[in-house]
Simulated scan of single mutants.
Amino acid sequence: MQDKKERRTNRERSDTTRAELMAAARRLFIEKGYADTATPDIVAAAGLTRGALYHHFEDKKALFCAVAEAEAEAVAAETERAVSDGMRPREALIKGGDAYLSALALPGRTRLLLLDGPSVLGRTGMDEIDNRHGTRSLRGGILFAVRAGDLPQNLPIEEATQLLASAYDRAALSIETGGDPDEYRRALALLIDGLAALA
């Protein structure tokens, strides 16, 4: 019994250390950017040692990858919470898209996920993260809408997912630099309605 309790305590301590490193890294990646953030800065901000960092992460890139994964997961969760079971597929796509833009409005998220993410991890690496989270949700929403007859039956699912995801990402970047969120939401809803009109 005592050994199990001790192991659990060690695991909890390890999880706390990892979370502290990720939180410090997130702050610095947002404030300074990936390239200008050094690992000594991260461990100093976390109040930990370099040994603790390298125990949990192979290098700075691996730490950035973990931060980006956590951010993408949080965005997908916020997006999915905005969609309820009773919604028509078209409405769910629009509500989910609106929630995505709201989630990306959290300070630093567009930099982490849409600017530094592809730069640091490469387009393929960032796509892998997206496919586990936001893109997966969007693909599911589009497929649901096609099966329900709200979108054309011959719509290429993968290509439509990539194009619509790109439109939402571009909108998020524009909103970040002062674009009107309501106008971007309206334009994106019209894009979806344009597809729906072909069904």
Rank of each mutant, 00 (worst) to 15 (best):
M1I: 12
M1L: 11
M1C: 14
Q2A: 11
Q2V: 09
D3C: 12
D3E: 15
D3N: 15
K4V: 15
K4Y: 11
K4S: 15
K5Y: 07
K5L: 13
E6W: 14
R7F: 10
R7K: 15
T9C: 13
T9H: 15
T9Y: 15
N10W: 10
N10V: 14
E12A: 15
D15W: 12
D15V: 06
D15P: 11
T16W: 14
R18W: 07
A19W: 11
A19Q: 08
A19N: 08
A19P: 07
E20L: 13
M22C: 04
A23K: 13
A23Q: 09
A24H: 03
A24D: 08
A24I: 02
A25P: 04
A25W: 08
R26H: 09
R26L: 07
R26K: 08
R26M: 08
R26A: 12
L28Q: 07
L28E: 07
F29E: 01
I30S: 01
I30T: 09
I30L: 04
I30H: 03
E31D: 13
E31N: 09
K32E: 12
K32M: 09
Y34N: 03
Y34T: 00
A35G: 12
A35C: 06
A35V: 10
A35F: 07
D36T: 09
T37V: 01
A38N: 07
A38H: 14
A38S: 13
T39D: 12
T39L: 02
T39A: 06
T39G: 06
P40K: 02
P40E: 02
D41T: 10
D41R: 02
I42E: 04
V43E: 02
V43S: 01
A44E: 12
A45C: 06
A45P: 02
A46K: 03
G47I: 11
G47Q: 06
L48W: 03
L48S: 04
T49L: 01
T49K: 00
T49I: 02
T49R: 06
R50L: 14
G51K: 00
G51F: 03
A52N: 06
A52F: 05
A52K: 06
L53D: 05
Y54S: 06
Y54H: 01
Y54E: 05
H55I: 05
H55G: 11
H56S: 08
